[in-house]
Design a protein around this nucleic acid. Structure first.
Length: 319
DNA sequence: TCGTAATCCTGCATGC
DNA sequence: TGCATGCAGGATTACG
């Protein structure tokens, strides 16, 4: 299931294979994947055709590709193709003679790249969006200045002046962005009055964290998922943020987490991080720190995995 | 205004 | 064997 590291792996692949290439035509196979683009599949295709794909960017689980008129356009793009993988979305680069996937939703037919760095072998000429459960989707959105960076207390942030799609403007920065400091995270959590895991899964608090990495980071920090966010201390917030970064960077290095072939990179290959998970999906198995059996509990219409000894249940909302 | 629960969707596993 | 049910979960929406 794609969370931040998986989306970043896909972003890198899209950048490598599709950046700088012009869209020849667009085929929408299933307009349910454009649910959030209210103007319809015809307008979607029309607005993409003849545009050049720029360098892709990401915030949390939102991935977007700025659209330009020319390959070396110096003017900032005004519109972006926004892709969200949901829990079963895939982006694949393939040739047009490859058989259509069962859940193929949108195909972008690309012109050959003609820049000097073009490799000798021909590049795949299609960018395909595939989505089994249709929780993900594509849409077009105008780009606008990033409020998260411009409103930050620290200056000289690399994000200052960055453009974000309008549809993702409400999404908080993710743990790998420099704007997310330990103090920022502490203040953000203290302002909320909810459980820690609820806060981690709320993309307006911090983005990019899904069920898997929330459980993993809480285990690394030794904190229970129901711990109240407003009672967290500075050092605990720092530990939790460190846990988030640690697990995400490790997953990124392994090419992401693959559970059921729902996540693959743009070449169709699976990641290898699953074998490194400490609690998620390990109900009944021994905790690698204290040997207590990992417990699974129902939480927010999903499952929470934790070690009852390393992550004791809070009493009176604290510990 | 904020926090929480329901909803969307499909394939797979399980039970009868 | 075939059908019904439960489960997985990210983002949005509706409700209290």
């Amino acid at each position: 299931m794609p969370e931040l590291p998986e989306v970043e792996v896909v972003r890198r692949g899209v950048d490598q294979w599709a950046a700088g290439r012009r869209i020849q035509s667009v085929v929408v196979h299933d307009d349910r994947s454009l649910r959030r683009f209210t103007e319809g599949p015809e307008v979607f295709a029309q607005q993409l055709t003849d545009k050049v794909l720029g360098q892709s960017e990401r915030r949390g689980k939102f991935l977007w590709i700025p659209l330009q008129d020319q390959p070396q356009d110096s003017d900032p793009a005004e519109l972006a193709l926004v892709i969200h993988l949901g829990m079963s979305g895939q982006v694949l680069m393939e040739n047009d003679d490859a058989p259509a996937e069962k859940h193929l939703k949108v195909t972008l037919n690309l012109e050959d790249r003609t820049t000097p760095e073009q490799p000798p072998e021909p590049l795949p000429n299609q960018l395909r969006f595939i989505d089994q459960r249709i929780f993900g989707g594509m849409q077009l959105s105008p780009l606008m200045p990033d409020a998260a960076a411009t409103g930050h207390q620290e200056t000289e942030l690399p994000e200052a002046g960055r453009l974000i799609p309008e549809v993702a403007i409400h999404i908080a920065p993710d743990p790998l962005e420099p704007v997310v400091t330990s103090e920022w995270f502490f203040q953000t959590l203290r302002r909320r009055r909810t459980g820690l895991k609820r806060a981690l899964l709320d993309q307006t608090v911090i983005s990019g964290v899904g069920n898997i990495y929330a459980d993993e980071a809480l285990w690394l920090a030794g904190m229970h998922y129901a711990r109240r966010s407003e009672t967290i201390t500075r050092s605990q917030a720092g530990r939790l943020l460190q846990g988030l970064r640690e697990v995400m960077e490790a997953a990124l290095a392994a090419g992401g987490t693959s559970f059921d072939s729902l996540y693959v990179n743009v070449n169709g290959a699976s990641g290898y991080f699953e074998r490194s998970l400490e609690v998620y999906g390990r109900s009944g198995e021994a905790c690698r720190r204290c040997q207590q059996p990992i417990r699974r509990e129902k939480f927010m219409n999903r499952s929470s995995y934790f070690c009852p000894r390393c992550q004791p249940r809070p009493r009176n909302g604290r510990w």
